[in-house]
Design a protein around this nucleic acid. Structure first.
Length: 342
DNA sequence: GAGGCGTGGAG
DNA sequence: TCTCCAAGCCT
């Protein structure tokens, strides 16, 4: 038995589907490649399509198959992910690729449970891959689905309390056939029509069935609990140059910017103590500002020509593209003040 | 289950 | 400038 809202949505999707490099066209006989679906879904976690596109192209060009990715060096993958954020995704991506390549014969599991057991694949991503790559009628619930379903059913209970109800609404709408297209259709609708701020209800294929639209509260849903303010932290970042080389280190494998290339820093706190990697005449070049998920940060950039041995990091030619954005900002400040390499 | 975990774009 | 936020996961 089919839901007529799903029919209307699929008809809209057949006309309006976004052409994305990891997708099979709507109603396509040819299924999407599970490796590409998985890679795109991980990259798209909490991340916009616009931000993902170039990274997806570079990854698939460099590593066309999961076996290729599994064989890559950790540092190479972290460098390729630099700038995309949430770096635990890249660490888990590599772990997952190696499990699939080494333990599963290079074949992704084709069930939600099988996928869910892999590193970096949670409830949403497992359902999405199962539906999109394997035509399983999984109930796919992400931020778009939460917004669309909250509005369709005029759910005024705030998130996350409303999650179970939202899932019920989404389940009732999920078709047995074309579940992958259905999931992607809801996401396209959420990204282009049923947007967070100013939904274009006039263009929506579901507007006649939308309780929030009828009540004139579509733009107000879903309701969310207010968020805590971000605290301020400060710190020092030390940029040491020796000829054409820069003092750099790989951050510890867990926590903030874990596993990423970096310059040495002090602690980050309300009142940080300086922590230069060696004694020198450090020149303050200015501050860089950066906002993370849960705090604001101001780092004072200190630069020196390498004098003695550093107690941390190594001197090597720098690949600025491998730096996460915070350290790319510090690097930019230094290169603005000093000709490259000087 | 609540908090840690990035980034760049939009309004 | 500032807030919100975009296809969540892990602990």
């Amino acid at each position: 038995m089919r839901d007529k809202r799903s029919d209307a949505l699929l008809a809209w999707y057949d006309r309006q589907a976004r052409d994305l490099p990891w997708r099979a066209p709507p109603g396509s006989e040819q299924a999407a490649d599970p490796y590409r679906v998985w890679l795109s879904e991980v990259m798209l976690q909490q991340t916009t399509v616009a931000a993902v596109k170039d990274y997806f192209a570079r990854f698939t060009e460099k590593w066309p198959r999961v076996q290729d990715l599994a064989a890559a060096e950790d540092a190479e993958v972290m460098a390729a992910w630099a700038g995309l954020g949430y770096y635990a995704r890249a660490r888990n991506l590599l772990k997952c690729a190696r499990v699939v390549a080494h333990d599963l014969g290079g074949v992704f599991p084709d069930t939600e449970d099988g996928l869910r057991a892999l590193p970096g694949i949670g409830p949403y991503t497992a359902a999405a891959i199962a539906a999109i790559a394997f035509q399983r009628p999984a109930v796919v619930v992400d931020g778009n689905v939460e917004r669309v379903m909250s509005r369709l059913a005029a759910i005024e209970v705030p998130l996350p309390t409303s999650k179970p109800l939202i899932r019920d609404v989404a389940a009732a709408m999920t078709p047995q056939d074309r579940p992958g297209d259905h999931a992607q259709a809801v996401m396209d609708l959420g990204a282009t029509i049923c947007t967070p701020r100013s939904p274009a209800c006039i263009l929506c294929p579901l507007s006649a069935d939308c309780a929030a639209r009828a009540a004139g509260i579509a733009a107000d849903l879903p309701r969310k609990l207010p968020k805590a303010a971000k605290p301020e932290r400060r710190g020092f970042v030390y940029v040491a140059q020796r000829g054409d080389t820069w003092l750099q280190e790989t951050r510890p494998p867990k926590g903030l910017l874990g596993g990423m290339l970096a310059f040495p820093t002090s602690e980050w706190s309300e009142d940080p103590a300086p922590a230069p990697p060696f004694a020198a005449d450090w020149e303050a070049l200015g501050d860089v500002r950066h906002t993370f998920t849960h705090f604001h940060l101001t780092l004072t950039v200190l630069r020196a020509d390498a004098a003695g041995n550093a107690d941390r990091g190594t001197y090597a030619p720098l690949d600025p593209g491998a730096l996460p954005t915070l350290f790319a900002k510090a690097h930019r400040l230094v290169t603005q003040r000093f000709a490259a390499g000087a």
